[in-house]
Every structure is written in C-alpha cells, then in structure tokens.
Design a protein around this nucleic acid. Structure first.
Length: 456
RNA sequence: GACCCUAUCGUCUAGAGGCCUAGGACACCACCCUUUCACGGUGGCGGCACGGGUUCGAAUCCCGUUAGGGUCGCCA
C-alpha cells in the first residue's frame, strides 16, 4: 500500500434525488466506490435533498436501487429512502434535509468571526479576492481567477433570505463533518472548487483532496442531460443489460488498465484503479460498445443465473412459465444465449417454446408454408415419427437423409420446418430447438402447418 | 463577456522525447464458417486539430490559434 492508500480514505457520492440516476452520476459513484475499495477506505452515500419541493422518498429509492443494481455498496448512508430514518454509520444524518442544525452552527461560526454577513435578508460569505490554487488529483495544478462578474462582487450567498442554506455551504459542511478526505466528482464542479476551498479555510480546516472526472457526452458531443436518450441508468436496467457490463463499460469510459484488455473483472479494476490515471477529457457514450460488452458478459454467465435472468425477462414480457418444467425452461432459453444482445431481445427468440399454438408470422408463412413445401414437410414428419432418440444429432441426420432422398438441399426442408415449429424465420438452431420441443410438440406443429397449407 | 478544463482512427483508448512505419477494442467493409439470426475466425479501411518554438530527435515539453466542454444563481 502506498502513502495515500494507507491513510483512512473517506469518499462520498452525494446525489440530489431528482427521480432518476444519471449515467454520469452512476460513473461518479462508481469511481468513488472503486477508490474506496482500492484503498480500503470508506464509501459514503449522502442525499442532497435540500430542495424539499421536488424531493420525494421515491426519488431517493431510485438512486438506492440504481446503486444496488450496479453493485456499489455503501459503508455509510441511508438504509432506505425515508429521510427521517437513521442511516448506517456514525456521521449521519445522511440526508441534508435532516442537518439544518449543523448548518446553523457553522453559519453562526462564520458570522461571529465576520467571515460572513447579512445582506438583503440573506447571508453572504466573504470570498477571497485572491486566485485559488489547488492540485487536482486527476487533472493537475489548477489556478482559478475570479471571473469578471465575480470581480464585481466576489461574495456569494450561503443562506437564502428564506433561511435555506445553499449547495456550496451544505456541501462543504457535510464533507467537513463527515471527514471526507477525497472529493471525486464531475468536472462541472471544477470552477466551484475555489468557493469550496475558501469555505473550508474559513472553517479553519484543510480542504479535502479533489479529483474531477470528465463528463459523459452524447454521441454527437453535446452535454448529456436528463432528456437525452440513454441518460438514465433505468433505461439500461429496463432494456436488459447486465450490471457487470454497464459497470465494465463505465470503467472504460475514462479509465484504462493500459494492457489492452477490455473485459475487466471488477476485482482487477479495484486492484489497479487510481485517481491520477483518470482521463482528462470528456467521453462520448457509445451504445454499440456497451452492447458488445453485454454480449460478452451474457456468454460467460453461469447457466443458472442466465436461466434466472432469462425467466425474469420472459415473465416481464408476458410469457407464463408456470406450466413448464424447470429443465425445459433452462434448455429452451439456453438456445437463445448466443443470439441476443440484451435480455429484452430474448422473449421473441424463445416465446414459441411456451405456447400451445405458435403464432404464425404471415410473411414467414407466405414464404415457407407453400404448396411446394407440403410434401417435403410431410416427408420430414414421417422421418420424425419413429425417430429414436429424438436428439438434435438424430434429427439433423434424419433431415439430411430425407433431403437427399428427395434430391433437394437441406435448406428446402429446414426453412419450412422452422416456420412450422416456431412461426418465424429467425430463431435458435433448428435441430436443437426441435429436440427441446420434443417429438410430441413438433409433430403437432407440423400437422398444424400442413393443415394451414391445405387451407390456403 | 470573464474564468476554468480538454484535444491520438467515426467512438473508447495505449503512448509520460528516440521502442511509433502510432498499438488495442467497438463500429464499419470484405471473405470464411453456416439451416435462419447470431457467435466465431481472417483481412481491410481509418488518427497524433493547426501554427510556431525547445531538442540531434516531439504524438509526447513550451507558446499561440482553433475547436469542444464546463462555470460565473437567494439551482444542485
């Protein structure tokens, strides 16, 4: 352990409960968590719910659920979305709405020392006129001068005329009171840091170390805001991405293991993650790469977990699995594993396994269940009736023998058979799907297809 | 308007003065594999924003320009 690692690192993620967790916020949380785990430090979750009007318990739950889904466990912080509930940890409360007396105490401290003053009913902080210089762990030396507007009046409001303390004040007080040693946050706070450092000094304490991480931009390079496609973590949860894939992708967006590896077990990342190596420039979100990672993680999932997640996705899509044996479900969904990019892709691939009568796609039917295919299908049915064992290999052999006997290419039998069994032109391997379906179902579906052709 | 950050293939990145004829991944294109759709395999396309310095030598250091992003609120 190096010098930094051996000190007691305390980092925090301090989101405002707006009703959703921004993907950029998720990465900020991730980087804080990684740094805490890398250093053996403490990861704290604090809810910045000072804007009482739009903060609700539900909005907090969204954040907690998002972090839990990502696997980012916090050592101190809320246990649920209820602000008045006592959290875990001895530096609480972890909701700003419950810390009014703490803020009052420190405002009093500033007032008594003439470091703040009343003006127009508000309380303003006497900001230094000198440039603030600090060493950012991710970026390097930063020297911040006053802007022209600030030069006119450098002092800023820390308590509104309605008595509510503002962000800069509470953020600093909480970091101070909670013993935060490293502030890892979005680059959009880099200019605010001067104010924060000045406040820490006024309170008579050394400011924490800062590490500002780059922002996540839209594919077109514009800032990703709430409305933008894919800005909310919830969309990835709903669209069937694996948390480990999202985490891996987020890690790669601004950090690199420097050894050309892309698939990174989280333990490896924890072992190597550090602040100075964080990328300095903003990154654009690339859904295609996330999808690629998701496929990779889908492939290496254990059979049990895949079956569980696939079952969930099916139930959510309205497919009832209750009537089917566990083995049948597992065998059926496993045939789709290599075919899908996300779990929401799965239901259309395997739903035919779980219905009495397949829904015949009109186009597929028109193309494959033609009078010309009738005799082929009937012949294939004949080859399957007494086939033993009814396995993929045996089915394949039977189909090929039948095709050869009729002097047609395998595909001439394969395509109509697929439509007969699944109703669609795309899907899992035909031979395997027939094995899983079982002889009885297959023959019944063949008969129905044959009847369809006769009717048309 | 001012202040701050940033700048390597379309995208994410490796690169901390000679190892660079700039490496990898995603995407894209071609071919192979193949019963569909995918997976996989092989190959290809493609980049140091620009201009000045410093140096024997610069993607790497310095300055400027340009571009992008951020901030300057009684929002967080």
């Amino acid at each position: 352990m190096d010098a930094v690692s051996s000190m007691n690192v305390r980092v925090r993620f301090a989101p405002s409960p707006t009703g959703f967790l921004h993907i950029g916020g998720a990465r900020t949380a991730l980087f804080n968590w990684l740094y805490a785990r890398h250093t053996g430090g403490t990861f704290i979750l604090r809810i910045e719910d000072t804007d009482t009007a739009r903060n609700t318990q539900e909005a907090v739950e969204v954040i907690l659920q998002g972090l839990r889904w990502l696997g980012l466990d916090w050592d101190e912080g809320p246990v649920d979305g209820q602000a008045t509930h006592l959290g875990r940890g001895d530096r609480g409360p972890y909701f700003q709405s419950q810390r009014a007396d703490v803020y009052r105490k420190w405002v009093q401290y500033l007032l008594e020392r003439n470091l703040a003053y009343e003006a127009d009913g508000a309380t303003k902080f006497r900001m230094t006129r000198e440039p603030i210089v600090f060493e950012d762990l991710a970026i390097g030396a930063i020297r911040r001068e006053l802007t022209d507007r600030e030069a006119l009046d450098p002092d800023f409001v820390i308590v509104r005329s309605d008595g509510q303390p503002v962000f800069h004040l509470v953020n600093v007080i909480d970091d101070l009171e909670m013993g935060i040693t490293h502030v890892v946050r979005g680059e959009d706070h880099i200019s605010n840091t001067a104010k924060h450092i000045a406040l820490f000094r006024a309170f008579g304490v050394e400011p924490p170390r800062y590490a500002h991480i780059p922002l996540i931009l839209n594919p077109d390079g514009t800032k990703m805001s709430k409305r933008d496609q894919g800005a909310s973590l919830a969309t990835y949860i709903e669209e069937g991405y694996l948390p480990e894939a999202v985490v891996n992708y987020l890690v790669l967006l601004g950090w690199s293991p420097k050894d050309n590896r892309e698939i990174l077990p989280i333990e490896d990342v924890i072992g190597r993650f550090d602040l100075p190596q964080i990328q300095r420039h903003n990154a654009r979100f690339d859904l295609k790469k996330l999808q690629w990672l998701n496929v990779a993680y889908l492939h290496q999932l254990s059979g049990d977990r895949f079956t569980a997640l696939a079952s969930q996705a099916l139930e959510r899509a309205g497919v009832s699995l209750a009537p089917f044996p566990k083995d049948y479900i597992a065998a059926a969904v496993s045939l789709a594993r290599e075919k899908i990019k996300t779990l929401t892709d799965l239901p259309p691939f395997v739903d035919f396994f779980f219905v009495d009568e397949v829904a015949l796609d009109p186009e597929a039917m028109a193309r494959e269940l033609t009078p010309a295919s009738r005799d082929h299908l009937a012949a294939l049915r004949g080859a399957l009736v007494a086939l033993d064992p009814f396995t993929a290999a045996a089915i394949e052999a039977a189909l090929k023998t039948t095709a050869a006997a009729r002097s047609v290419k395998n595909a001439v039998l394969v395509h109509p058979a697929r439509v007969a069994c699944t109703g669609k032109t795309i899907g899992p391997s035909l031979y395997h799907l027939m094995e899983v379906l079982g002889r009885e179902r297959v023959l019944r579906r063949f008969d129905r297809a044959l009847a369809q052709i006769a009717d048309s």
